[in-house]
């Protein structure tokens, strides 16, 4: 199939960006979206132009590197999948496709379609962990965990940190990501001792990074490749309410 691509090109963080139109000719329906871009890039390179910069690594929907806003939808039309898992069979000959990077103050564009998501790591640094030292731990089966809790924690833990939730949120809020992290540990017995400080500190850091405020639009869940539920946002709200009333944290 032949497609028209309108790709956001931006030379650097400070540079002025804009859309450039490319023809993507005879693309196989079995190719993945990123493979389609590979083909375009090969042709650009042969023509001596700089290829389109986009982030990717595992190309199987787990590393969370990739992420494009395709026709106004982060990760594209296919629900429950990352950009790298999108295949061209979702498009038809002659389609016009618009590709933009994630847009948020906390995700500055680095080049073309690549953004800096280290704000997520900084949020994790203030409490997204359980403080155990290597070796200083009980036997694996010493602490029993209810299957329901383990499964729910796993739902939250499956977040790949791609940032699509922020990209899709009308408020550029990171609540889905943060709530997934807070809930994953908060749901497990191992996570209880630090539960209050964790939520207070991670939310504080989230604010510091300049993410927006959740008004419960639910767009984030719709585009999340792991379909993390906004129920975790409610869970976070409850935890923060409780923790604030206990008035601990930094």
């Amino acid at each position: 199939m032949d497609l028209g691509l309108n790709v956001w090109r931006q030379a650097g963080p400070a540079a002025q960006g804009g859309f450039v139109r490319y023809e993507a000719k005879d693309i196989s329906e079995h190719a993945s979206f990123l493979e389609m871009l590979d083909i375009v890039n090969e042709r650009l390179t042969e023509a001596g132009e700089e290829p389109i910069v986009f982030e990717h690594d595992c190309r199987e929907g787990i590393c969370g590197c990739c992420g494009l806003v395709i026709n106004g939808v982060p990760h594209g039309p296919q629900h429950g999948a990352a950009t790298c898992q999108l295949h061209m069979r979702h498009y038809k000959h002659g389609d016009e496709i618009w590709i933009e990077p994630w847009r948020a103050k906390a995700f500055p564009v680095m080049k073309d379609l690549m953004v800096d998501r280290n704000s997520f790591d900084r949020i994790m640094q203030v409490g997204g962990y359980i403080s155990v030292r290597t070796g200083s731990v009980p036997d694996a089966n010493a602490v029993l965990v209810q299957k329901e809790d383990a499964d729910l924690a796993m739902d939250a833990a499956s977040c790949i940190g791609c940032g699509a939730c922020v990209a899709a949120c009308p408020n550029a809020s990171a609540m889905l990501f943060v709530s997934a992290k807070v809930s994953h540990l908060g749901l497990l017995p191992q996570g209880q001792p630090e539960r209050r400080d964790r939520v207070l500190n991670m939310v504080a850091q989230m604010d510091e990074e300049g993410f927006g405020n959740c008004t419960n639009h639910g767009e984030c869940e719709a585009v999340c490749p792991k379909q993390i539920s906004t129920d975790f946002i409610a869970q976070l709200n409850r935890d923060l309410f409780g923790a604030s009333l206990a008035a601990t944290g930094r």
Binding site: V73, P170, H217, E219
Partner: peptide
Amino acid sequence: SYVKGLQSEES
């Protein structure tokens, strides 16, 4: 903001 605007799915 997005030049093409965000598609609203859930809101």
